[in-house]
Computed example of a mutant assay.
Amino acid sequence: MKRSSHNPVTKMMTVLSGIGLVVILNSCTTSSGNSGGMQMPTPSLPVISVSNQAATTFLEFPSTVEGKVNVEIRPQVSGYLERIYVDEGAYVRVGQPLFGINDQPYREQNANAHAAMLAAQANVEKAQLEVDRLTPLVKNNVVSEIQLKSAEASLQTAKANLAQAKAQAGNTQISLGYTVVKAPVSGYIGHIHHRLGSLVGRGEDLPLTVLSDVNEVYAYFSMSEIDFLQFKARTQGNTLEEKIKNLPAVELMLADGSAYSEKGKVETVEGQFDKTTGAISFRATFPNAKGLLRSGNTGRVRIPSVHDNALVIPQEATFELQDKVLVFVLADSNKVVSRPIQVEGQTTNYYFVKDGLKTGDKIVYSGLSRLRDGAVINPQPLSLDSLLKSKPL
């Protein structure tokens, strides 16, 4: 049986399909008709006027701190460690006893040496008596002169033996004194490597301890070859020694990021570059009367560079493209144009511009990601002085 094409359901589906097609076409027509009339609003962005400021930048270099004097304390005689007079970290003065080594063997040696010295002294006196006895007899021709010369020779031998005995006694006395190890300088005691009862001697690999004189400390830091060349170029002076003398006082930033309270002075530089690292080492001296710094401390030496009239811009107002630093400069008709700049220094928040901008140029401060060359903005003036108050140089 043939189905009728006038089925009500079929008619309804056809009508609905037609209505949907009309709605879609009408929507597309309306959308395309209005697309030409829609415009993006002009963005309002903060703009600052570039100006010159007096500022100071810092070059930072990792450093290690050492006491002005670091002395390895080693025994000069062998024996068992009987006494430890100090504790680790204690401050000691020059000549103060630090360690005591068993001195009994050295006392015995010293006693024997003194006994031998007394015997040698007695032999000298005996030989002298013999010479004194024979001298008048020779003058009176009672005995031959040969006997007197023999006695005088014996006297000289006795005196030589006495001198040798005195030297031996002196050596044993010195060795006995070495059983008490004393501080050669004032300073702080480091780690004590041996304990009571340990057998110590001159051949030990480890010292008894290390004594550090930290009334002044040395901060050692290194510059790469490029940094060193830039240092020589920007520092006044005809010779390297003059340039070092002309460097201002330096700061020491501690491991926690705080600044050490005392300023230091760069004093020396090594004579050649390290072939392994390609760097050259400097030494700065810092006073440490309070003993706050110890050997082994780490930190960063900061060398200041004073800029009397630097062109300052915030780092937020810049962006990087292919290793270049750029800014958006406000041009005619409120259009922005990207411009590369050359940076000669920086602080945490600001760049110092060497080339690419001049005083009075206006640059966009924020919202740079939305901008392209030729884009039009609604500039909102922002004072650089107010920005400097909230984010100091």
Rank of each mutant, 00 (worst) to 15 (best):
Q322L: 13
K265V: 05
I73P: 02
A375V: 08
L134M: 06
P75F: 05
D361S: 05
R370T: 11
K265R: 04
I226N: 07
E152D: 11
L118F: 12
F58Q: 03
S63N: 05
T135D: 13
K166W: 08
L208D: 12
L148K: 03
S295W: 07
K68H: 13
I363A: 01
E72L: 12
N26H: 14
T277Q: 07
D308A: 15
P207L: 10
I48M: 00
L357A: 03
E242D: 12
S144A: 13
Y365R: 02
L45S: 04
L240P: 01
R83V: 07
S390I: 05
S175M: 12
M38W: 09
T64W: 07
L81T: 04
D274T: 06
L59H: 13
A160N: 15
L59C: 11
F282D: 00
D373L: 02
R339K: 05
L293V: 04
R294S: 10
P287V: 05
V15P: 11
F99R: 09
H193K: 12
Y106F: 10
P314S: 03
R74K: 14
E316S: 05
D227C: 08
F273T: 00
F273D: 00
P207V: 06
K159D: 11
K324D: 04
Y260A: 00
V131A: 10
S186R: 03
G177V: 07
G36D: 11
G360E: 01
Y188E: 11
L330N: 03
S366Q: 07
A120K: 04
A279S: 09
S222T: 15
E344A: 13
S333V: 06
G264K: 03
L81W: 06
V269E: 03
T209F: 06
S212K: 10
L321A: 09
V250R: 05
Q380I: 09
L211I: 13
P184Y: 08
Y220L: 14
A284P: 01
K362P: 08
D87A: 15
D205P: 13
V86I: 15
P8Y: 01
G18I: 08
A233E: 08
P41Y: 00
M223A: 02
S4N: 09
T64M: 12
K2C: 14
E88G: 10
H114I: 12
T172P: 11
Q173D: 15
V306Q: 08
A160Y: 14
G299N: 05
N52C: 09
V214C: 15
S32H: 14
V353E: 00
G296W: 06
K139P: 13
Q76G: 10
A165Q: 08
E66T: 14
K159I: 12
L25W: 09
E82P: 07
M40E: 15
Y365I: 03
G356I: 09
I48V: 03
T277N: 09
V306P: 01
V69P: 03
D274Q: 09
N171L: 15
G345I: 01
E251F: 13
G36R: 10
T10Y: 11
